[in-house]
Design a protein around this nucleic acid. Sequence first.
DNA 1: GTGCATACAGACAGGTCTGTCTATCTCTCG
DNA 2: CGAGAGATAGACAGACCTGTCTGTATGCAC
Lengths: 192, 192
Amino acid sequence: MPAKPVTPRDVGVRDRLLDAADRLFYTEGVRSVGIDRVLADADAAKASLYAHFGCKDELVAAYVQRRVEAARSTIDRFVRDVPPRARALRFFDWVVEWAESADFRGCPLQHVVAELSDEKHPARLIAARQREWILGRLTEWARAAEVSHPNRVAGALMVLFDGAIAAAEQDGPKRARDARWTAEKLLGAPRR
Amino acid sequence: MPAKPVTPRDVGVRDRLLDAADRLFYTEGVRSVGIDRVLADADAAKASLYAHFGCKDELVAAYVQRRVEAARSTIDRFVRDVPPRARALRFFDWVVEWAESADFRGCPLQHVVAELSDEKHPARLIAARQREWILGRLTEWARAAEVSHPNRVAGALMVLFDGAIAAAEQDGPKRARDARWTAEKLLGAPRR
DNA sequence: GTGCATACAGACAGGTCTGTCTATCTCTCG
DNA sequence: CGAGAGATAGACAGACCTGTCTGTATGCAC
């Protein structure tokens, strides 16, 4: 039962804490998981956590921040090897892959927003910035695809992205494929 | 700032409790809000809550159940006065209206799913059934619209619905309009 | 009026959670 | 060797939360 020492003990306590927080917060939620669970999973002392992060909210923010950074670099790497005009659809290939991956459990950012009702929570501010970043990329790719209303299409792709993740969490990865199929319609044949 | 007695005291304590639970759970989350908050807002006694609902989880389930029933009748009433082939798009008109309403704060079911990591929680079972109901309606309407791949279109509409609500919660109601616009494209120009 | 169902009021127990603090250990650098 | 940085271990305070229990008040049926 006890999912124990996944991160070896010589990696530095900060990374160990972040790894444990990531595992537990993502699979069970930031409010369901208490500090003590993170400490046990990281095999770390409480003082270490508070020395490195100050409070639980900052640990949550650091968890979200690391997720955001990983997502940005993953996405940019994923679309890099196709021409700009194909990148929007390629992005949805990544979404499908993510939704199909074994440990997929929905969007950590959507979860954090739902769990933390305070809009000023540091983790929520990070999540809000990430939405802007994604919308920026989608807009850029929609323009490159030469669709007739790039801003509207970018907004629609944003909806498809959010919907793909939220729906795939409940109904399985086929919803991500439905989203990709829809994106293809938005981007594809209509040259006008 | 204490939002006090919104429901008059002669409506029956069960309804008062449900009204208070609905307000607080929807705006702040089912885990953020404790029993005592609900009791104070409902102007009720703790014994009444436990006599009527047994435990907090069942109160949460009753809250979700009431939301679900209200949504079903609202949706069916909303699409009733257009022909079947126009109902899918009409459904997204309702989504737009909901996202534009003043107290819109996202989908209560998505929030409950994010907040309660236990898939067997009674509230989550109710939420899961509601998804099936919605998908059923969308499939029915997609068929009536005579699209070429009704199941696929229904799945895509489900994604658009989830995405509209999730994205509108963050970005405002324009995302719901983006979703409607996309649905229009999926359902084809010939309509009305 | 008596009895009963329903509701209010609130104390209380038991648990959990965050955050602080003290004490100890270990490793590295000088 | 010795000092200090960084870590562990865990007790503890204070807050909060769920659920139980006792006692009291109100209103209705008979």
